[in-house]
Computed example of a mutant assay.
Amino acid sequence: MAGINLTNSVPSTFILIGIPGLEAEHLWISIPFSMFYLIGILGNFMLLFVVGKDQTLHKPMYLLLCMLALTDIGTTTSIMPKALFIFWFNLKIITVGGCLTQMFFLHSVSIMHSAVLMAMAFDRYVAICNPLRYATILTNARIAILGLVCLLRAVLLALPLPMLLSRQPFCANRIISHTHCEHIAVVKMSCADTTVNRTYGLMMAFVVMGSDLTLIALSYSLITRAVLRISSKTAHQKALNTCTAHICVMLTSYTSVLFTTLTHRFGQGIAPHIHIILADLSFLVPPMLNPIIYGVKTKELRDKVVKYTCRR
């Protein structure tokens, strides 16, 4: 009732309650969440620092890796500060404008993240299938243009989400059972017909991930065909090793996002707090693991990290 009275008195706000049913455990839940967030931020900033510092790493592969790191930082930073304020200080109020802004940044960065993974698959395809033309096909200037195109696509696809919702009337009880302004959770607050909002949100999720995953699958099918034609076992192993890190990153990213997207819309039998915890972890775990995966699997990057972190 207190939450309902507050929303009636301040009609331009929502209330994010965090993880419903586990309010008493918010402080304990914040410990692993904050650790994952801190590790992810430090790891990705370290990657950006090392690549920016070392001229020998100013190559298309590492520039794409920097884009991935930026999207990882943007994804977690879009949701975690507010979530931690809820867990630590019980600061649950968020303005409608702030909520829609958070939604826009979260979804635009997520779309950008998917596009970067697709671009990295194309990078691996050119490196393995056309190694002699790699330097002419993928220049740093073209990578920069590709990054701008991915950013423009992300903005154009994500912008209708908050714009459509901004025209919706919201009910008096504006309590969102989530740690952040997830699109479908905000849609449920509307008192009007939300068919267009729900359809566009679902269509965007499947079109973005569907098109990107299709192109990634096409790239790796061509890579697999090229690798199978290599007679030398050493060259065969070397070619596969160049793709290992990217495959691991894709598995951690797409598996968690697809699972939470499908369960949130179709898994009515799953408890709400499980939905929310899985959704938060899908935004926290991949950004934490990505720099670790590339640091372990990419020898050149690993050597540079050791050089800059261990020198006096």
Rank of each mutant, 00 (worst) to 15 (best):
A69Q: 09
F14V: 04
D54S: 12
P81Y: 02
F14T: 04
I19N: 06
P60H: 14
D54Y: 08
P20A: 08
L6K: 12
T76N: 11
L6N: 08
G43Y: 01
K59P: 05
L22A: 06
H58T: 12
M67T: 10
L57M: 15
F85M: 11
D72Q: 11
S12P: 06
V10N: 14
T77K: 04
L16H: 02
M46N: 06
P81A: 06
M61N: 13
K53H: 09
M80Q: 13
T76D: 09
S9F: 05
G74M: 09
A69K: 08
M61V: 12
F45A: 02
I4D: 14
G74V: 08
I79W: 03
S78R: 04
I19E: 02
L16Q: 01
N5K: 14
S78F: 05
M80K: 06
T71I: 05
T7C: 11
P32N: 01
K59L: 14
G21I: 09
S34A: 03
V10M: 11
L68D: 13
Q55C: 08
I15Y: 10
Y37K: 00
I31D: 02
I15A: 03
N5V: 10
I79H: 03
S9K: 13
V50S: 02
G21C: 12
D72H: 12
L68P: 08
I86R: 05
S9W: 04
T56G: 08
L48M: 08
G21M: 09
I19M: 03
G18E: 08
Y62P: 11
H26R: 01
S30V: 01
D54M: 06
N8C: 10
F14N: 07
M67Q: 15
I4K: 14
T7I: 04
T77C: 13
F85P: 01
L84K: 04
I79L: 12
L68I: 09
G18L: 06
L6I: 05
A69P: 12
S34C: 02
